[in-house]
Amino acid sequence: MIIAPMLTRIVGHRRDFNIVVLGAGGVGKSCLTAQFVQNIWIEAYDPTIEDSYRKQIDVDLSSLDTAGTEQFTAMRELYMKTGQGFLLVFSIISQSSLHELSELREQIIRIKDDENVPIVIVGNKSDLEEDRVISRSKAFSVSQSWGNAPYYETSARRRANVDEVFIDLCRQIIRKDNTTHAQREEDPYAQYRDPGRERHAHRKRKTHRRKREGGCMIL
């Protein structure tokens, strides 16, 4: 959240980003998304409306969650195409859910044709510590091998780390977006971008993450 105002400054104006949430069935993807989009349960959550998966945090973020349609494997690509950033969610109490992520990641990279596509790895259900089968170090080493993707442990149920996950991903997308623009030499945001500040943001993120991860993040 600390980073949020900075995003605005970097971006200069509001942009639309699509985040795709992927993971095996039953890892709590939907909870994660619902929690993030909703923040607080006000009355009731209605997933059938257009804005169900949209949230504005300085940028306009749409998340596309495949929950419920995991078995429509042919559809995955459809989702993946639309996303600029990906949350790969597994459950720390399910070994296979982590395995399935590797498939998904491969598919993403193939479709995006980009090894450095913004990805955040999420180990959900951190509240079920006693049932944990995937250790932090294991998960972290996996995330390292995947292009050093940030790893977070979340509890959608307790709403722990939920916003952080999305914001980190969002930050990655923006950075990538800006880089791409810069390299194409048609960066309309150059005037807004202050490299020093960006570095600063980066540093901040690291400390931020280190705090959250309790030191398991190696940078």
Partner: peptide, 14 residues
């Protein structure tokens, strides 16, 4: 698929 997603989110979101 849309029904399945909706049902999942009603379940998870409420």
């Amino acid at each position: 698929g849309t029904y399945l997603t909706d049902l999942t989110f009603v379940d998870a979101g409420n």
